[in-house]
Design a protein around this nucleic acid. Structure first.
Length: 725
RNA sequence: GGGCAAUUAGCUCAGUGGCUAGAGCGCUUCGUUCACAUCGAAGAGGCCGCAGGUUCAAAUCCUGCAUUGCCCACCA
């Protein structure tokens, strides 16, 4: 036998993956007498190649999957990809822009077709990458969120929600992205700090020389004011409130009332707030409570509408603000400006400033769903690792607001909503309804909106099993065991899966939630293309191998903590992989040279030394520790313990000790005892190493002269009694 | 405004009541015909953020403070 002096990942990894895949080791045997271990892979977005964050998830999930497979449980890991609504639309629109085109040049159908082809290409890239990373997932069950059967299931969920009164259409103030031209949920808005001015404007009191001064960061919205509000407890304004004061809205010919609203902060600005129900969430709320008119002065294009008045119509909001200030100054109604720092909402995907607008959208009534989700966690049916995220989860769930699920984009699942042209009655149906149930008309128009991408991914753990059909897979594999993902999508995804899972299936979709952190560079900087510190997982794999990357990602990264990754760390782990390779090389070459007669003999016939017993005792202890690390989701600890034990116990002590004994042995039973320790020490180490470094361990296993199974991946996890000498 | 986390060697982190506080990387010295120089042996390097408290005993538990990072919120 010839063995390379160093581990060469490129030469080996592809061959090993093919062996596993061809033998069908990733596909579980359904066995009703055993509980399966199931993970649904968080589906990567099909608009790009994998990034290092995906690699973290893959590494951790594959570690769990391989461990439980070795334990003899039926394991299933379901791969898939997400169409990733807005993000993908933005990405593909950028592609089009490079050719000087927009989606409107293509039209809805052609745009969808091209984007679909684009995601299919990415899907193939992602598949290849997952394989390179060693993901032992069941490819026969792979899914995409736009597969026809998935879409049908999503429609069914929507239909049920609608039937139960948990989904409704309504005019509400929503977050509008003027660039994406769509409504967004609250979660899809991120805030960034901005230096701006606080503008003070005097509103004349009708029938007196008095003024009420308001403060605003957005002077242009005053054109849509329908009231001014003060806190009822504010002494300064008591007499005005008592007299039912009316105010003349400057720059318009409107008369608006002064009203009392407890939401107004006495200490902010002048204590008087201009109320623009059409363009501010708080004002919208106050407006509803006081039956105020909603006057939309800003359009979906972020320009002033006709209702803003002739002088302002068509201006961009910023331009309009300047003009309003100028005009107020002329009238002597500008009471001054001060510097002010506040945060502005921007679109999570394209960073355009969000325009709050009143618009007709579809919402999910989340309160009842959230209550069920909270109690699933409170009762321990779902457990979070690390536990601290439970508190964060509760806080969000307890303050949840209705979820806007309609998007005015083209890429995604079009809502199965049909409106009768004659009587406006709504029918929920996958296909065009035959006849309106109310008026009998056959004339329908389909809702042009698509679903929020998280509406479908929020159902992923049961969609992949064919729900609502009670398939064999659904009955056996659902609920799943562990949901492993990044904490950054706790609300976006995990929370929604729990709500929709319980609603649709009556059961929480998983038992454990394991949340990993964000990947950062060694200066704790977030990775971004502009900083140039992005680690491309596939480049790392090409250079150092998949095993080294996996180790580097789990080593030293506790649950929920940021994951620090650097070239040095990966190199260090590549050294470890090489160490494993070389230890095996030594063992295999040694026993080959010595004839390996010990393999045919019973261990009772060898005379073991004190060190031999000590080594196996220590190995038994390692095994116990590793098992308990897995039970507590402490993969980093398990990795560190195994690393240390292999290198400093097995290599530095046991190999050195046995090496000497084999050389100096006087009696064959002494030599054979040493060989036994060397060999079975290695075999058992390989099993324990395998979840973390599957490629190098399997490639060594394939070279063993004596093995119980065809492959290490399906071996039996060691038991303590295997270590009794 | 509310909340969460972190703070231990130059760097990245272990260590949740009990020997002299540990590991990897880095650094210093020595060592290769022996599996691996992608290696081995030895070594230097710590007021465990600060201040109190509980305890026979505190890096570890409690209180306060500081610094850093993050999350949430209708900051007009």
């Amino acid at each position: 036998m010839k063995i390379d002096k160093n581990y060469k990942p490129n030469k080996i990894e592809q061959k090993i993956y093919k062996l596993w895949e061809d033998e069908g080791y990733f596909k579980p045997q359904i066995n009703r007498s055993k509980n399966p271990f199931v993970i649904i892979m968080p589906p990567p977005n099909a608009n790009n190649a994998l990034h290092v964050g995906n690699a973290v998830a893959i590494a951790i999930e594959d570690i769990m999957i391989r461990y439980h497979r070795l334990k003899g449980e039926p394991v299933l890991w379901v791969p898939g990809t997400d169409h990733a609504g807005i993000m993908t639309q933005v990405v593909y629109e950028r592609e089009l822009a490079k050719k000087g085109k927009s989606r409107f040049d293509l039209g809805r159908n052609e745009f969808y077709k091209q984007t679909y082809a684009f995601t299919m290409k990415n899907r193939q890239v992602i598949r290849d990458q997952l394989k390179k990373l060693g993901a032992s997932c069941d490819w026969t069950r792979e899914k995409f969120t736009l597969d026809p059967d998935i879409k049908e299931s999503v429609y069914e969920t929507f239909k049920r929600l609608y039937g139960d009164g948990l989904v409704y259409q309504g005019e509400r103030i929503i977050n509008w992205c003027p660039r994406c031209q769509t409504a967004l949920s609250d979660l899809e808005v991120v805030y960034k700090e901005e230096q701006t001015k606080l503008t003070y404007i005097k509103y004349p009191v009708v029938g007196s020389g008095d003024f009420i001064t308001v403060a605003t960061t957005r002077p242009e919205t005053m054109l849509g004011d329908t009231a001014v509000a003060v806190n009822p407890k504010d002494k300064r304004y008591k007499k005005f409130l008592k007299n039912k004061t009316l105010l003349k809205l400057p720059l318009t010919d409107r008369i608006i009332p002064l009203i009392a609203a407890k939401e107004v902060d006495v200490d902010f600005g002048t204590g008087a707030v201009k109320v623009t129900p059409a363009h501010d969430p708080l004002d919208f709320k106050i407006g509803r409570e006081h039956n105020l008119k909603i006057i939309q002065v800003i359009g979906k294009d972020a320009k002033m509408t006709a209702k803003a008045g002739k002088n302002y119509q068509g201006l961009a909001t910023k331009e309009c603000a300047k003009k309003v200030i100028l005009d107020l100054k002329k009238l002597g109604l500008l009471a001054g400006q001060t510097d002010y720092a506040h945060s502005v909402g921007v679109c999570e995907r394209c960073r355009t400033t969000i325009e709050p607008l009143v618009s007709k959208q579809w919402f999910i009534r989340t309160k009842p769903l959230a209550e069920a989700a909270i109690s699933a966690v409170k009762s321990g049916k779902i457990k979070f690792y690390p536990k601290r995220f439970e508190k964060i989860f509760y806080h969000w769930m307890e303050n949840i607001k209705d979820w806007c699920i309609s998007r005015q984009i083209w890429w995604g699942q079009r809502m199965p909503v049909w409106r009768c042209k004659k009587c406006s009655n709504i029918a929920i149906s996958k296909e065009r309804p035959k006849k309106c149930k109310k008026c009998g008309s056959k004339d329908f128009v389909q809702e042009s909106d698509t679903f929020d991408t998280w509406f479908s991914s929020g159902q992923w753990p049961f969609l992949v099993f064919g729900w609502p059909r009670q398939t064999r897979d659904f009955r056996y594999f659902y609920p799943t065991t562990v949901m492993e993902t990044g904490w950054d999508i706790l609300f976006f995804w995990v929370a929604r899966m729990i709500m929709l899972g319980i609603y649709c299936t009556g059961k929480p979709p998983f038992k454990y939630v394991y949340l990993h952190g964000l990947v950062r560079d060694k200066d704790r900087q977030k990775m971004s293309k502009s900083k140039g510190n992005v680690v491309n997982p596939l480049e790392v794999v090409d250079l150092y191998g998949s095993d080294a990357l996996r180790m580097a990602l789990v080593f030293g990264s506790g649950p929920g903590n940021d994951i620090i990754i650097s070239e040095e760390k990966i190199v260090g782990q590549a050294h470890f992989i090489n160490k494993i390779w070389n230890a095996a090389r030594f063992v295999l070459l040694t026993i080959q040279q010595e004839g390996a007669d010990f393999l045919k003999k019973k261990k009772e016939s060898f005379s073991f030394s004190k060190n031999d017993k000590l080594f196996f005792d220590n190995l038994a202890r390692l095994l116990k520790e590793v098992d308990s690390c897995f039970n507590e989701f402490n993969f980093h600890k398990a990795a560190e313990k195994i690393y240390k034990f292999f290198w400093h116990n097995y290599c530095d002590r046991t190999i050195e000790d046995t090496k000497r004994r084999i050389k100096e042995a006087k009696r064959p039973e002494d030599k054979e005892a040493a060989e036994y320790v060397l060999y079975y020490g290695l075999v058992n180490m390989l099993k324990i190493l395998h979840p973390f470094v599957p490629y190098v361990s399997e490639s060594i296993y394939q070279m063993l002269p004596k093995r119980d199974k065809k492959a290490l991946i399906i071996e039996n996890w060691p038991r303590e009694k295997d270590f009794k000498l």
